[in-house]
């Protein structure tokens, strides 16, 4: 087996006195799709946000595609080019059109010519099924459409890894499916390493290679989805699953 694309070794992080990540060890293989779940405040978002250094870890090692995350800005920027991120609140740029949102990174970070960046952007907008919205501003779109634009924006950077931080939590219920469909389609195309923090267990069952359960800053349990849901080992996992699956 080839080297893992993400390696986290004994990662620890504190917010002041609060120990938010405790001895996280996680290896993610190339092309692997992982769903991270757990109660709120369990550190799952913090963990994936450490991977592109939106949060700083204080102890341990994180290596992404052979580059270690340190204070070195060059390393951080290099890793961020490889890692796309989709946020709970989309974080689209409201003063730019959809197309401008999608081409900003490719033009200024990847130094692509404008025409090429726009062609790529349109290709991804078709894939998330909203090419007709290219000239609009994010504020004119629905939540589900905005989140699909955000996914397209990340894909335009041609990342090796995609991080999803509760991508459907801020959406109205009727819009969750359109976003999940796009994510499932992305997963089915294969090749993309995906880490997704979500409570959408249907999505986990459909596409995940591995489900990780976190609680109080620790990885409590991880397993293949069928095993994870049918036969949870840990008491805390069982409690959590009983609460979200009803």
């Amino acid at each position: 087996m080839t080297a893992p694309i993400i390696e986290m070794q004994q990662v620890n992080k504190w917010y002041g006195e609060f120990h938010v990540l405790r001895n996280i060890n996680l290896n993610v293989a190339r092309g692997e799709r992982i769903v991270v779940c757990g109660p709120s405040g369990s550190g799952k978002s913090t963990m994936i946000r450490c991977i592109n250094r939106l949060e700083e870890h204080q102890q341990g090692r994180i290596v992404v595609d052979g580059t270690e995350l340190t204070n070195d800005l060059k390393n951080i920027e290099a890793i961020r080019r490889e890692v796309g991120m989709v946020f709970q609140h989309f974080n689209l740029f409201p003063h730019l059109t959809v197309l401008e949102n999608l081409t900003l990174g490719p033009i200024w970070v990847l130094r692509k010519p404008k025409a090429e960046a726009e062609a790529t952007a349109m290709k991804y907008l078709e894939r998330v099924r909203i090419p007709e919205q290219a000239k609009k501003y994010p504020g004119q779109l629905s939540g589900g459409q905005q989140q699909r634009v955000a996914i397209a924006r990340s894909l335009c950077m041609n990342p090796k890894i995609m991080l999803f931080d509760e991508p459907t939590s801020a959406l109205d219920p009727e819009m969750v499916k359109e976003v999940l469909d796009v994510m499932i389609q992305l997963a089915e195309e294969g090749g993309m390493t995906m880490l997704c923090v979500t409570h959408e267990m249907g999505f986990a069952k459909a596409v995940a290679h591995r489900v990780i359960f976190m609680d109080r800053g620790e990885i409590v349990e991880q397993n293949k989805p069928e095993e994870f849901f049918s036969n949870p080992q840990n008491e805390r996992t069982r409690l959590f699953l009983s609460q979200i699956l009803h």
């Binding site: 592109n52 250094r53 939106l54 920027e77 961020r80 080019r81 890692v83 796309g84 991120m85 946020f87 609140h89 989309f90 974080n91 689209l92 740029f93 900003l104 990174g105 200024w108 970070v109 924006r153 990340s154 950077m157």
Partner: peptide, 13 residues
Amino acid sequence: KGQYEGADSLGLS
């Protein structure tokens, strides 16, 4: 803060 994070996640300087 999300605007800063959105820009950071794209790798903008």
